[in-house]
Nucleic acid binder design. Sequence first.
DNA 1: TTGTAAGCGTTATCAG
DNA 2: CTGATAACGCTTACAA
Lengths: 350, 350
Amino acid sequence: MRSRSATSNDVARRAGVSRAAVSVVLNGSRSNVRVSEETRQRILAAATELGYSPDLAAQSLRRGQSRIVGYVRRSFSSIVYEQPIPYQIGTSLTRTAQKRGYHIIEVSAETHAFQDRKDLLQLLLSHRVDGVIFDWPSSESEVQQFVDEGLPVVQLIRPQFSIKTPCVTIDPSQGINEALDYLVHQGHRRIAFIGGGVSHPVDSSRLDNFVQASTRHKLAIPEEYLLPGTQYSLAEGYRLTNTLLALATPPTALFVASDILVLGVLRALYQARIRVPEEMSVISYDDTFAAYLSPPLTSVSQPFEEVAERAIALMIEGIMSNGTVQEAIHVVLPTHLTMRESTASPRRKM
Amino acid sequence: MRSRSATSNDVARRAGVSRAAVSVVLNGSRSNVRVSEETRQRILAAATELGYSPDLAAQSLRRGQSRIVGYVRRSFSSIVYEQPIPYQIGTSLTRTAQKRGYHIIEVSAETHAFQDRKDLLQLLLSHRVDGVIFDWPSSESEVQQFVDEGLPVVQLIRPQFSIKTPCVTIDPSQGINEALDYLVHQGHRRIAFIGGGVSHPVDSSRLDNFVQASTRHKLAIPEEYLLPGTQYSLAEGYRLTNTLLALATPPTALFVASDILVLGVLRALYQARIRVPEEMSVISYDDTFAAYLSPPLTSVSQPFEEVAERAIALMIEGIMSNGTVQEAIHVVLPTHLTMRESTASPRRKM
DNA sequence: TTGTAAGCGTTATCAG
DNA sequence: CTGATAACGCTTACAA
């Protein structure tokens, strides 16, 4: 039973005015209808007395827009700790959207048993979403199908660049430069890179930036220190670290391209009884749970909160401009190093 | 612009039938209307050709129920890692609900800027939720206001017991018993308890169960080993561990009442250069990210997935039984120990 | 078996 | 400023 909430009709009756007046007052519509301050107050009073809350479904139906934005997040794993970033972004997205009168519906392979790509489309279309935000879309067509529907689309972090939509991405260069400056300043010369793959430009750019920064410092990093990796996982970090430790001259510092990888790095180090930072310096990338590990990890922080804010701004712009083909704006946000306790000067033993 | 999706009318026209027929076919309604197999197929074909997806808002409006369930989660912190459980449950809730044709709208202090309690009510009421699930409601009135609206309410994990609603809770006893059996079996006698407070029965019961299990093993745990704590946080785990380490005869094993606490425990141990499990055995409670730490932690696993499933089942029952005052069913789920690598026999030195 | 018509709560329009 | 009225897309009696 939808227990009968008060309707705008009830409010109107109680305030002794017309439904139209109620509608105008309650959603500051820019109609040419003017309401006297006095009746205005009367309506507001009636609304709160009755605990009136507008029926979103009815509004959506009538207005032809739902004020709902879909957030499709990439996910391989149903375990929060293996994919923390989408959760974090989802939270920020929801909060930001709410401030502007929008709602987020979060959709992912974990939470929705999709038979195929069609189902995703159907679900979101059924909700009559006003637009869709993608976090690392898994294919072009996944994005394209919404563009084809004429819906505003915004892509985050790892866009399908072939599809021209507004994007919000993160530039790793500043953070990685700071990380290398810091390490070099502490006296490190033998710094290794542990990555999680190069399947997307965003991933390979972490390695590229690392290499650039290291040549800038004239470090002459040997090939065997550069491990691009194949996936972001604990197991991968563990494996790559062990490869490094088996080297004739292992590195004195590790730059690890994600927090998930670093879990594996720390495990390998722990098993080898190598202490951080005394015997090995470690810097991670992401700064999601880096601060919670032991020792608290120095990490390159990504501005997820701002990613969400910009994404919502872009999205609402897209919704407003309604058909007007907007330029595919590309917002790029910087990273920075957050220093904690996982680095130290290398031992001067060899 | 809500780009014109196909409507049921379009489908009807295309199939050359009435809107009524379309409705009947597309949602297997138990109406007494029979549709011939042939027209049935025709309608289905037309629907897929047009990419028809029903307008949820319109359905909601017409049916008088939204098929939306609110999930209000407790939250102090906006950081995922400090409050992993609500996220995990939210995901499971969404997945389970979807299988049964429901949608979850997740609401929390992090994601929604509520001025006061009223706003929460308003938001959910605006969505015309069919019911509300609470995870650790922060006050009686928070729950009561929805009960007063006549909405089905289900409480999870840490209910406000004073309000008679169906609940799904977790019984720690089995997991804690197994943990102590295991530790004792490995030769530990000096086992300490690190807790995160006793503000809710659920929290104090972890301590109670620990004490019971230890007396069952005739351990005679000294008072100073029993630290109920005041909050679930890294800092608290850190502080309590240091208290323990400062003791004349410190424990050889630590039972830690949550994963967040254990982060602080590991930090204290790491700083004190005490290795787990060689010099100190550690068992955590929750098993959220325990497996990702180093060493992988033996932990008491809570059945969050099943909590979500039962909660949805209870909720849908409540929605169906619609006014019929249902008995306040209380589902209690068991815990169990998941063994990993954070315990070992104590050193036989003293 | 199929078609018709009413109505869910809103907002917009248009004449008073 | 008010008051009717229509319409959004859908479901469901009820009539054909």
